[in-house]
């Protein structure tokens, strides 16, 4: 088969420009969502409903995952720490890794899979069945009525869920470390409190999860809003939400971690 060498560059160029175009579309979409954000607070009931479907329904998966992650961290951490005879530091290791990294990141990933995918599918189907167009006809702004509440629900839910994840993880580590292995209860907590700084560790962790909430929420409504109005389009959009959200969260995490923790010592 004779391939025109120029077509290679054409494909490369097309791949780049189409992605840039989509990025620009997303940026303009984000701006227009921001513009109607204020209106949403006048009808807070809309957010309540979305908070229920995105936040409350994600509670079980987040808390159970947090518990298990904390337990695994405790088992693995103990295994390494006992070689150096400093098993009391288990609380520090578990709390720092949960509050700084695992809490915000894993919660955002779980949220992308559990809630964002559903939001994308819902909005995509609204698009496919012309419900969004119908709203426009009735002079109801779909951005304010459909998109903004779902976006805000993600922004509110993710930090709260991340805090719950971290708390459940510390609880799980306590069950394994103190109750089952038998580390001293006082040392577990006091070493943790001595090393975890509220501003540097906890506030930064919460800030991270707020940023992740904004990213995941925006991606889910964007993919849904611009989904191709077919059954296949909705399924593609749902997949893209999960993939893009996960990659974005991990990339943002790297950037934020470098910004927040590089200057320390």
């Amino acid at each position: 088969m004779n391939v025109n060498p120029l077509s290679l560059f054409t494909a490369l160029g097309h791949a780049l420009t189409s992605r840039l175009e989509r990025l620009g579309l997303a940026a303009r979409f984000a701006l227009s969502v921001l513009r109607v954000l204020g209106v949403v607070f006048l009808r807070f009931g809309l957010i309540i409903r979305e908070l229920y479907f995105s936040g409350v329904r994600s509670l079980s998966i987040v808390i159970v995952s947090g518990l298990f992650v904390g337990m695994v961290l405790a088992v693995q951490g103990y295994e390494v720490l006992q070689r150096y005879g400093s098993t009391e530091a288990l609380g520090v290791i578990v709390a720092l890794s949960l509050v700084r990294e695992l809490g915000p990141v894993v919660t955002a990933l779980l949220f992308a899979g559990r809630a964002s995918s559903a939001v994308t599918a819902e909005i995509g189907l609204m698009r496919a069945t012309d419900q969004l167009a119908a709203m426009d006809m009735m002079a109801v702004d779909p951005l304010a009525r459909v998109i903004a509440p779902r976006f805000m629900a993600a922004v509110f839910s993710v930090p709260l869920l991340a805090a719950l994840f971290s708390a459940a993880g510390v609880g799980g580590a306590w069950i394994i470390g103190v109750k089952l292995i038998g580390i001293d209860d006082g040392a577990f907590w006091s070493q943790m409190q001595a090393s975890v700084d509220v501003r540097i560790d906890i506030v930064n962790g919460i800030l991270k999860s707020v940023v992740f909430g904004i990213a995941v929420g925006l991606i889910s409504v964007f993919e849904g809003y611009f989904a191709a109005p077919t059954a296949e389009g909705v399924s593609t959009a749902t997949t893209r939400t999960v993939v893009t959200s996960s990659l974005t969260v991990l990339l943002l995490d790297l950037v934020l971690t470098v910004m927040m923790f590089r200057g320390l010592n």
Binding site: L160, S166, V196
Partner: peptide, 24 residues
């Protein structure tokens, strides 16, 4: 409202737990 209120209260409780018990 009840479910969301409980969710938010739970989240704030978790934050307080992190701040008080974990972070001193």
């Amino acid at each position: 409202d009840l479910a969301v209120g409980a969710f938010v209260a739970l989240g704030i409780l978790a934050l307080l737990f992190l701040a008080m018990k974990v972070g001193n």
